[in-house]
Amino acid sequence: MDWAYIEKVLPLYGKATWLTLRTGTAGILLATLVGLLCAAVLHWRIPVLRRLIAAYVELSRNTPLLVQLFFIYYGLPKIGIKTNPEACGIAGLAFLGGGYMAEAFRSGIEAVDRIQEESALSLGLTRKQTFLSVILPQAAAISVSAFMANVVFLMKETSVFSAVSLMDLMFTAKDQIGLYYRTTESLFLLVGAYLLILLPLSLLGTFWERRLRHAGFGT
């Protein structure tokens, strides 16, 4: 292990870590939004739209992110939809994650007892009030573990972004290995950087889930 070399390339990895964090967070936020919208459409059984959403969820969950990225980055420009690498990565993550998030929220909403909705409606709450202040809070508590699992999963999936020439951690490590044969150091930094991102995230998930269970929410 050559520490002088590590010190020299540390800023490079810092930049790559920041890129992974930035694109990952943006993608996950978008995916959460998409997932919420899809889950709402599925819950309210909006005709036609519901079938489209169901098809989208299946499509996004049954194809690899890498294939989705290649299609967005190399395929779509041919019919006039151009993207830059970063937007492509975020869009791909949102497309993939939207399906997973929709599944997580949908199963959370389904797990709330029907009697909750019926009671709320019979007490005179409107449909909107029932959904927002009765069903959603309970569903959210149940969905937390699936949601956090998805967040960690999506953050890990960002590791394929290098395929659409985003200069992320994988790209940097591969570059350094290719240019200088610094295999040991590069892999050490790669693993270290991913631990730095993923360990707190996964600990946060465990902690949050335990707290909610402790409070008597959820199942």
């Binding site: 994988m170 790669l190 693993v191």
Partner: peptide
């Protein structure tokens, strides 16, 4: 296995163990 992306594991096996 859970904490590391599969891509990193592939790199560790393909570049790392061959070197080590």
């Amino acid at each position: 296995i859970h904490i590391m992306p599969q891509m990193v594991l592939l790199f560790l096996m393909y570049f790392g163990t061959t070197r080590a």
